[in-house]
Simulated scan of single mutants.
Amino acid sequence: MAEQPGASVELSGLLEAATAQLTEASIPSPRVDAELLAGHLLNASRGEVQTKVLTGAQLSEEQAERFNTLVAERAQRIPLQHLTGTAPFRTLELRVGPGAFIPRPETETVVEAALERLRQMRSAQMETAGVEPRLNAVDLGTGSGAIAAALAAEFPQAEIHAVELSEEAAAWAELNFQNLPSGSAPVRLHQCDLREFPKQVSEEFDVVVSNPPYIPEDMVPTEREVRDHDPELALYGGGRDGLEMPRAVIEAAKALLRPGGWFILEHAEVQAEALREICETDPSLTDVETHQDLSGRPRSTSAVVKEYSA
């Protein structure tokens, strides 16, 4: 007797049930998450999943069981990125997991500001010297490597460095650096405290970028995905105002940058005024600027290290 094919389950019904389950669990985007989990299972994009629904696609019982397990884990507020193993960031699909801070969309605007500064530096130096300049940039507290990887992929003319203290996060960063698109700049990873990094290098940098920990010690995040799964080392900035690490980034940037070099660091909206004042009252800094994210909130601050006076 011929072997009977296994039973199948309609994808559309699975997605409807998953959406209801994730809605009940207060997931902010239940249908999107359900479709992304299905895409992870089927090795398909979200758009391809939607097309499969329209064409009445079926899943095997085994696939349906695996999908329902993923949905149940998401309903327990395990981050979507930990379940899929990836997180989109600008042009890249980064590998992420436990032990590394999941990159956020607002950090993409910090990268764009850094890229624009590198482009300006390159253009000015080429106009002056007529040859390709040797620019370099360093990402302090790289986590999964998001900022450094994006700089390397989108500005391959520069030499990119990344600094990370956590062994777990550094492992994810190294994996992402090894899997950069063809033509990207290589990234040199330094596993150390960003406060100690200036003592370990002799070269000067053109650009310093950082998304340091900045949450005040008594402001525990309400979002379970952040509170329970992002590493504390990547969240809490130290002190009642959370500004110990942002201040340390500024001091490290001053030590690392050549005269005329530029740094930018991400921070909380409520810290913008304090960090601007810190930079503006520092006699070694100039051209202090507050940058807004895509929703118009002041989420990063930049400054230039002053040129030596004659």
Score class of each variant (00 low, 15 high):
residue 7 A to H: 03
residue 8 S to N: 07
residue 9 V to E: 10
residue 9 V to M: 01
residue 11 L to N: 04
residue 12 S to R: 05
residue 12 S to D: 02
residue 13 G to M: 03
residue 16 E to Q: 11
residue 25 A to R: 12
residue 27 I to T: 10
residue 28 P to S: 12
residue 31 R to Y: 12
residue 33 D to F: 10
residue 34 A to P: 09
residue 35 E to Q: 06
residue 40 H to T: 14
residue 41 L to E: 06
residue 41 L to V: 08
residue 41 L to K: 10
residue 43 N to T: 13
residue 44 A to G: 01
residue 47 G to W: 08
residue 55 T to V: 12
residue 55 T to M: 10
residue 56 G to R: 01
residue 57 A to R: 05
residue 58 Q to D: 11
residue 59 L to S: 09
residue 66 R to T: 09
residue 67 F to R: 01
residue 67 F to A: 03
residue 68 N to Y: 05
residue 68 N to F: 06
residue 73 E to G: 01
residue 73 E to I: 05
residue 74 R to L: 11
residue 76 Q to K: 14
residue 79 P to A: 08
residue 87 A to M: 13
residue 89 F to T: 07
residue 94 L to R: 14
residue 95 R to E: 12
residue 99 G to W: 00
residue 101 F to M: 04
residue 106 E to G: 09
residue 108 E to I: 07
residue 110 V to Y: 10
residue 111 V to G: 05
residue 111 V to Y: 02
residue 114 A to I: 12
residue 116 E to I: 02
residue 117 R to E: 14
residue 119 R to L: 04
residue 119 R to I: 07
residue 122 R to G: 00
residue 124 A to M: 11
residue 124 A to F: 00
residue 125 Q to W: 12
residue 126 M to H: 08
residue 126 M to P: 01
residue 126 M to K: 15
residue 129 A to E: 13
residue 129 A to Y: 15
residue 131 V to L: 10
residue 132 E to H: 05
residue 137 A to W: 11
residue 146 A to I: 07
residue 146 A to Q: 03
residue 149 A to H: 06
residue 150 A to W: 06
residue 154 E to H: 07
residue 155 F to P: 03
residue 159 E to T: 13
residue 161 H to C: 02
residue 163 V to F: 00
residue 164 E to Q: 02
residue 166 S to D: 09
residue 168 E to L: 12
residue 170 A to F: 05
residue 173 A to L: 08
residue 175 L to W: 07
residue 179 N to K: 13
residue 179 N to L: 13
residue 180 L to W: 13
residue 182 S to Y: 05
residue 182 S to A: 15
residue 185 A to H: 08
residue 186 P to H: 11
residue 186 P to R: 00
residue 191 Q to R: 15
residue 191 Q to A: 10
residue 193 D to K: 11
residue 198 P to G: 02
residue 199 K to H: 15
residue 202 S to C: 01
residue 205 F to Y: 14
residue 206 D to C: 05
residue 207 V to K: 02
residue 208 V to G: 10
residue 211 N to G: 09
residue 213 P to A: 04
residue 213 P to E: 00
residue 214 Y to R: 08
residue 219 M to I: 10
residue 221 P to R: 09
residue 222 T to W: 00
residue 224 R to H: 12
residue 224 R to L: 14
residue 225 E to A: 05
residue 226 V to N: 03
residue 228 D to I: 00
residue 230 D to I: 04
residue 231 P to T: 03
residue 231 P to E: 10
residue 233 L to A: 13
residue 240 R to W: 05
residue 241 D to V: 01
residue 242 G to Y: 09
residue 243 L to I: 11
residue 244 E to Q: 02
residue 245 M to V: 15
residue 245 M to H: 14
residue 245 M to Q: 14
residue 246 P to V: 05
residue 246 P to Q: 02
residue 249 V to Q: 01
residue 251 E to N: 08
residue 253 A to K: 03
residue 254 K to Y: 01
residue 258 R to K: 15
residue 261 G to N: 04
residue 262 W to D: 08
residue 262 W to R: 08
residue 263 F to P: 11
residue 267 H to F: 05
residue 273 E to F: 08
residue 273 E to Q: 09
residue 274 A to W: 00
residue 277 E to M: 06
residue 279 C to K: 06
residue 279 C to A: 15
residue 280 E to P: 06
residue 280 E to D: 07
residue 286 T to F: 07
residue 289 E to V: 02
residue 292 Q to F: 13
residue 292 Q to G: 11
residue 293 D to A: 11
residue 296 G to F: 04
residue 299 R to G: 03
residue 301 T to E: 13
residue 301 T to I: 15
residue 303 A to D: 00
residue 305 V to Y: 05
residue 306 K to F: 00
residue 309 S to M: 04
residue 309 S to I: 03
